[in-house]
Design a protein around this nucleic acid. Structure first.
Lengths: 185, 185
DNA sequence: GCACCTAGGTTCGGTCACTGAACCAATCTC
DNA sequence: GAGATTGGTTCAGTGACCGAACCTAGGTGC
């Protein structure tokens, strides 16, 4: 058994009365927002997070545990033999998409010359605005209707299989390894 | 002289091709986003950041220096005798407002029962939507037209003078210590 | 002209989180 | 039975963060 002292906030912002500070106490540690980003991209398994992020194993285990405890990820058994669990993003985690989108926009506009990925409204193909809305449809696009496509700045031949799988156009939240279709031969 | 190794990214995310990761390399360290938040609130001076954040002095100095180097804050002399500098947020820093707003919304919706602050469109009084837009005017509100007001969840009698000054309704970016009016007696 | 205060730092020893590598365990495949 | 796969845990080393003390340069009071 592991003591759970870790998630009892070794890094709070005690004096702050502020929702931003509150949010950062939950998701402000190193790697945490990238884990959530990957979860939005459809990554669900320990090993996939590991190879895609290049994160130390112990840190990943700690993050998955605390995010699960916070209700941002949900640990779910996807096969019994051998027993295997996956970490699926919850509504609470999905609600972080606009913040991640804004951060990514800011990063690209101020530090990346070339576009790495496009995010489009799947029903009309329009690229999303700064906050994840569709300018053409004038609505906030539900995360599952966001289509992610590689841009010109993205390495077309990455080393790890997860990056490779993420090169294909795909919807957010779509699991990386699709469950085996029962009717399929 | 201080060696500037610190800001040469002791904490990058080397393997990541991602604008979010890029952004987090700049603003993802502990305290950094709260410094930027305070700068948006109008805090400009070393000492004001210090008492309002409760941040260790050395860390604050490091953050101010790296944020200045990144062009997010600008160090500016505001009096000559004795020589004093203030740190003013730049356009690049102001561009982080939507991301901070999203984070704050998420924090409040998922972890705060009562509202701590209201952010309103100053011209019409409508509370801002999730991304800093005005639902009534259907426009993105420029940061300088955002009015910040205390909500019911905020301690009405905080200890430090900066929190106290921030209790009054005020626009974002409005400096905490207004420069002395020349015509004033 | 000396003591004290303010603003804006730097220095330093201790602690805690992160890092990388090694190790472990259960199940499946050959 | 050997090796691979998945999902971890353990451990020693390092680096970031912490709080407290100290420093400096220019006011201010008397």
């Amino acid at each position: 058994m592991v003591t759970v002292d870790v998630m009892a906030l070794g890094k709070d912002y005690a004096t702050q009365e502020c929702s931003i500070a509150r949010a950062l106490e939950i998701v402000g540690e190193r790697w945490t927002l990238l884990v959530i980003r990957d979860a939005l991209y459809g990554v669900r398994r320990y090993n996939d997070f590991l190879v895609h992020l290049g994160i130390p194993r112990a840190v990943l285990a700690a993050r998955l545990q605390s995010l699960t405890a916070e209700g941002i990820l949900e640990k779910r058994r996807y096969q019994e033999s051998p027993p295997r669990d996956e970490y699926v993003i919850t509504e609470r985690g999905i609600a972080l998409w606009p913040a991640l989108r804004s951060l990514g926009r800011w990063g690209r506009e101020h530090y990346n010359e070339t576009q790495l990925r496009y995010f489009r409204h799947v029903t009309c193909g329009t690229e999303l605005g700064p906050y994840g809305e569709c300018p053409a449809c004038a609505t906030v696009v539900p995360v599952e209707d966001v289509l992610m496509e590689p841009g010109p700045g993205l390495d077309p031949n990455p080393a790890d299989p997860v990056s490779r799988a993420l090169l294909a156009p795909r919807r957010l939240l779509q699991p990386l390894e699709p469950p085996v279709e029962s009717g399929q031969v």
